[in-house]
Simulated scan of single mutants.
Amino acid sequence: MTASAPTETAPRTVRVELGQRAYDILIGPGLLAQAGARIAALRPGARVAIVTDRNVAERHLGTAEASLAAAGIDHSAIVVEPGEATKSYAGLQQVTEGLIAARIERRDLVLALGGGVVGDLAGFAASVVRRGLDFVQAPTTLLSQVDSSVGGKTGINSPQGKNLIGAFHQPVLVLADTAALDTLPARELRAGYAEVAKYGLLGDARLFDWLEGAWRDIVTGDAQRVEAVAASCLAKAAIVARDETETGDRALLNLGHTFGHALEAGAGYSQRLLHGEAVSIGMCLAFAYSARLGLCAGQDAVRAQRHLEAVGLPTRIADVPGELPDTDGLMRLIAQDKKVSRGRLTFILARGIGEAFIAEDVDADSVRAFLEEMRSA
């Protein structure tokens, strides 16, 4: 995987090498206004169905539609409600029925315009309508630009756990318009930054070193932001190319997610706890648990937590507002994690900054005791 050198007019390009299903991630400002021209070049004559949510529609749907119209592309839009609760059976029904009603055919395209919820939902709908439609990701949040729009994981949530219903369905193009991030609330930007920090914490100590000095510029939006998105996409693209369907080291990308997903489910997939905030807490728990087991130095766990705290992210279970399930309830949610194999718990733990690894058959009683302690920390 390589990233092209930036010029004044060209976006950064990261290639996801998947043989005949390889695709480009384009990163830079102004890409939504170019969507029509790029889609017309990629798929001449295709019709496009835009899937977006109500909040994103207010900010960016007009730009996308004008771009498609200028390229002579027939298009329609399906607008869902914002929020994690839309990643549900009801949300999937709305999008799939909308695609069928719009008469989107196999040679046409679905355009996922929004954050991770829209990308996951639209991608999953595309994977099942007419037994598979191609789709383009146009992520509009930092979290979706560096993580969920890349790699082909699509799906919805179950009441029993996050992302338990889904499919691997790769996009044919990703348009990461970094100017769209300027419209995000500060809380959403910080939540997205947790996924940027994840790449340093799991496999690139030098990246984490850089982030400790550059995070303010990334959050506030200068040229460092494009570099951070590109670095994150390069890291994920390399792992996806090695292990597309998460049978091996792609699981490393779930650093912080086993704890984090349980907390998200416990908070009811609500605004009480955004996904990136849950990942932030989950990564701190993963490092603290690694230190508890003697796998990594305690100072590394402290360093990770202090960095995320400096950014303004939650780092403790107690930082989640409102009630959560008790420890046994959280353990039941952890037991539904997709990495569980025949009832055995699997966690992504760390031997240090940039040294994550897959730990199988983790002792459940040890995790339960650790969680019980951390709930009051």
Results as ranks from 00 to 15, higher is better:
L324P: 00
V340F: 09
P314A: 12
R106A: 04
Q299H: 15
R206C: 14
G298F: 12
F124I: 07
A167I: 04
A230P: 00
T96K: 05
G19Q: 02
F347P: 03
L252C: 09
A301S: 13
A304D: 01
F168T: 01
P82D: 12
P314G: 10
D363N: 13
L175M: 08
L285K: 14
G72L: 02
G152I: 05
N157K: 03
S144C: 05
I100Y: 14
G152D: 08
T247S: 14
T13Y: 02
D209Q: 14
E84K: 03
V219L: 15
R206E: 14
T183C: 08
Q137M: 06
I348G: 03
P314H: 07
G28S: 11
G312S: 08
F357R: 08
T346R: 13
D326I: 07
V146Q: 06
A238D: 12
E195P: 04
K339M: 08
G203I: 08
A297I: 07
A64V: 15
T63I: 13
T96H: 07
E323T: 15
D182K: 13
I239T: 03
R130F: 04
T96P: 01
T258I: 10
D209N: 08
I27G: 07
V219P: 00
L293Q: 13
V320M: 07
G354A: 03
I348Y: 02
P82A: 15
V240L: 08
D249R: 15
N163V: 07
L18C: 12
K87I: 06
D222E: 11
G282S: 02
G200I: 01
P314W: 11
S127F: 05
G151S: 10
I239V: 14
G115F: 09
L295V: 01
R59N: 05
T346N: 00
M374P: 10
G256I: 02
I25D: 10
A85Q: 12
Q93E: 15
F287P: 02
L349A: 09
F168L: 00
A122C: 10
Q145I: 02
K198G: 00
T315E: 05
R225C: 04
E277M: 05
D243V: 08
L113F: 12
A214F: 03
D177K: 01
I50Y: 00
D177E: 01
I25K: 00
G155V: 02
M1C: 15
V14E: 09
S149Y: 11
V80F: 02
T245F: 06
P11D: 11
D328F: 04
A228L: 09
S76I: 01
D24P: 03
T140L: 09
A350N: 14
A125I: 02
A69H: 04
I27S: 02
G166C: 12
A33L: 03
G200M: 01
V302R: 14
I358E: 11
W210L: 05
L252G: 09
T9E: 14
A122K: 01
D217H: 15
W215V: 03
T178R: 01
A297F: 06
D361A: 15
S158R: 13
V219K: 11
G343M: 00
Y269V: 06
A238L: 12
A69I: 04
V362M: 03
S290Q: 06
